[in-house]
Computed example of a mutant assay.
Amino acid sequence: MLAKQRFVLDTTAFTDNQLRAMIGDGDLHKAVDKLLDLIARSRIRLNISCHMPPVTYKEFTDYMNRYSCPEDILVKAETWIVKKTPNRYDTQIPSQVFFEYVRDIRERMNKGMRISEAAIWEAAVEAMVMASKGVKKSKIEMEVIGGAIKDFRKKYRGALRKGTLDSAPDLDVLLLAKELGAGVVAADEGIQVWAERLGLRFLDALSFPKMLEEYLKYYE
């Protein structure tokens, strides 16, 4: 039997828009179904297993259900994706990685605070100028406050969430991969950054099906 390979999949390993275009002709259900077929064939013929923490699997199935996923695809996912909760107590993470994560979050919080302060000042000044010109309150709220909130949310999300771990499913993916000595598959910059810092093998969502197809081509 071939040596076993394990991969832990994030939700984005299935739902990435570029993946959808590449293997599903833009259709989410078709892309997920095709990837699950590759996972099934790789499990049987190549001894490759694909895992998801339960919290990540629920995130994935909830996403699929929002888009009216056919039952047969969900059955296929339930059959071929191995669900396992990571051992959060015994899995060892280097203290340096933990230190770097705390420092990263602190820097992001400070950046978020600066963005908040700038947004308040800009909106306040613009509102006062418009008010001094006799502009109605309702128009100021719509044009200044509404626009400021929209711009603030975009910048704030970029500062605090892009390139870092910002959810329990993300963290569980890395912990399970660390526990199993598995590779990580995702289309998430934060997961990639911290997977590499933990010394884990990382494959982006577009590379993973190509790799499976390449393996299968030589076996079949």
Rank of each mutant, 00 (worst) to 15 (best):
D188P: 04
T164W: 07
R153K: 15
I149R: 11
K136G: 06
P94T: 08
L174T: 02
P94H: 02
A13V: 09
R20T: 14
R201Y: 09
K34I: 07
I105A: 08
R106A: 14
D27S: 10
K217D: 06
V8G: 01
A159F: 03
F152Y: 15
D62F: 13
N17S: 15
G134E: 12
D27I: 09
Y101K: 05
G158N: 10
S207Y: 03
Q192N: 12
I81R: 02
I73V: 15
E213N: 08
L38V: 05
R114Q: 14
I149E: 10
T91L: 09
M109R: 12
W194V: 01
K178F: 00
E196L: 13
Y57H: 13
K217L: 10
H51Q: 07
I105S: 06
M113W: 14
R108E: 07
Y218K: 11
D10E: 13
V184T: 05
K210D: 00
L175H: 03
A3C: 05
F14V: 09
K84P: 02
M1F: 12
D33P: 00
K133C: 09
K30I: 04
R66K: 14
N47F: 12
P54S: 09
V82N: 04
A168N: 07
H29G: 09
N17Y: 10
T12I: 02
A148D: 03
P94A: 03
R201H: 11
A124V: 13
G112I: 04
M52N: 06
A13S: 15
E196Q: 13
R153P: 04
D170T: 08
N87S: 13
G163T: 03
V97L: 03
S138Y: 12
T15S: 15
N110P: 01
F99R: 14
M109Y: 14
A177M: 07
N110F: 13
T164P: 05
E214I: 01
A77F: 04
D204P: 03
S167H: 04
V102N: 08
M64R: 05
M130A: 15
D151Y: 10
I93G: 06
Q192Y: 08
G181H: 11
K162S: 08
G163L: 03
I93Y: 05
G158L: 04
L74F: 07
K137A: 10
E189T: 13
D37I: 02
L28E: 11
G199W: 14
I73P: 01
N17C: 09
I149L: 13
K154Y: 13
S132H: 10
H51Y: 15
L216V: 01
S167W: 04
Y63V: 06
P53S: 13
W121D: 14
I44T: 12
K162Y: 11
I39L: 09
G181F: 12
W80Q: 06
K4M: 14
D10Y: 01
T11H: 08
R197S: 00
G190F: 07
D204L: 07
F7T: 00
E143D: 09
A168D: 11
D25I: 04
G26A: 08
T15E: 07
W80E: 02
S132I: 02
L35Q: 05
Q96D: 10
S138C: 05
T15L: 15
R114S: 13
M64A: 11
A177S: 13
A124L: 14
R66V: 08
I140M: 07
L212D: 00
L175N: 03
P53G: 12
A77V: 06
S49A: 07
M1E: 11
K84A: 15
V173W: 00
T61V: 14
A182E: 04
A187F: 01
E213Q: 07
